[in-house]
């Protein structure tokens, strides 16, 4: 018996979500009186997971898996889960993990709950709390099958260090060619820039910014904070910003530590997608903007005067606290 966690890497380096999943996995394994076993695909230093309570690491080295492939990855993880005799399997909520999750659950015949925000409320029966209705509610869901699979919601459980000494074992999955029938032919990704999924801070702009020519403000603020940039839906519909930046109920979900909304009214569909963020700052000229009701800190003011000043003051603050 074990808890198997899939710890994601990018170019060999563990993603932040890998440490969150490991933290969750270690705590759950303790609750179940079993071990937390990690599987990692082409990690450059698997032993890094030792700081998060992992007991054993199955390290896959396989050139065929250099590019993400949902079916092949799901198959490799399923074989690792069998090897580890896993009763619970954990994945993150990254775009890649969400892609492979149902394929993995189907291979294992597992009961699957996505978007889980906390450790199980009970383990017999096995009940987890997950977001539903686009963050407007929570469902408390029982996983009735003998194998359980959980998608850990981004930035929900947090990263908790726990030093262990883990063994690293090489693991070679058996991957038939037919698994690779769907192939990635090109990737279009800005490297070295924080993404909405894993940034600690997201700076988001709405129609109040008047036009794409003003986005320098959003970008400058994001740069000072090491933040990812995002936007409301009309902003991407108007072509001011790429679709991938649209956040909300029908866009990307945001569950960051700090969300700064500038010139965004706070429509219910926008709020649903960003409300899992811990601290929300709203800057808007209209004191009646609905977003203020969902905010932690609010400034009634014009973005074109408030934001430049905020950027200067933050630069000074960062210089002082560096």
């Amino acid at each position: 018996m074990s808890v198997l966690i899939y710890t994601e890497t990018e170019k060999g380096v563990f993603k932040k979500n890998a440490f969150e999943v490991a933290s969750y996995g270690a705590a759950l394994a303790e609750q179940l009186g079993t071990d937390c076993v990690a599987v990692a695909i082409n990690p450059s230093d698997a032993s890094q997971l030792q700081s998060y309570g992992v007991a054993k690491i199955l390290a896959i080295k396989e050139a065929k898996l250099n590019t993400f492939n949902a079916k092949a990855y799901a198959t490799a993880i399923a074989q690792a889960a069998k090897e580890a005799n896993a009763q619970v399997v954990l994945v993150s909520s990254s775009a890649d993990s969400k892609f492979l999750s149902p394929l993995l659950a189907a291979q294992l015949g597992a009961s699957f709950a996505p978007n889980v925000v906390a450790l199980p409320e009970s383990t017999a029966p096995f009940v987890v709390k997950r977001t539903a209705f686009s963050n407007k509610g929570f469902a408390h869901t029982e996983l009735t099958g003998s194998i359980k699979m959980i998608g850990v919601a981004n930035n929900s459980y947090g990263i908790h260090e726990k030093e262990t000494s883990a063994s690293v074992t090489a693991f070679s999955p058996n991957l038939e060619d037919r698994l690779f029938a769907t192939k990635t032919t090109s990737v279009d990704k800005v490297s070295g820039k924080a993404t909405i999924a894993d940034a600690d801070v997201v700076v988001s702009g709405g129609r109040g910014l008047k036009g794409p020519e003003n986005w320098g403000l959003i970008e400058d603020l994001a740069n000072v904070l090491g933040a990812a940039t995002a936007c409301s839906k009309p902003v991407s519909d108007l072509g001011w910003r790429p679709h991938g930046e649209h956040v909300g109920q029908t866009g990307k979900p945001v569950a960051t530590n700090l969300y700064i909304a500038i010139g965004i009214s706070g429509a219910i569909q926008h709020l649903a997608g960003v409300s899992a963020s811990k601290v929300k700052v709203v800057i808007n000229t209209d004191p009646e903007a609905p977003f203020f009701k969902a905010a932690d800190y609010g400034i009634v003011g014009d973005a074109f005067t408030v934001v430049p000043e905020l950027i200067e003051k933050l630069k000074a603050f960062k210089a002082q606290n560096a």
Binding site: A95, D188, G244
Partner: peptide
């Protein structure tokens, strides 16, 4: 074309 975290990628399939 599918959206990934921080960008997009193109896939060929059948």
């Amino acid at each position: 074309i599918r959206e990934i975290d921080g960008g997009k990628e193109t896939l060929g399939t059948q």
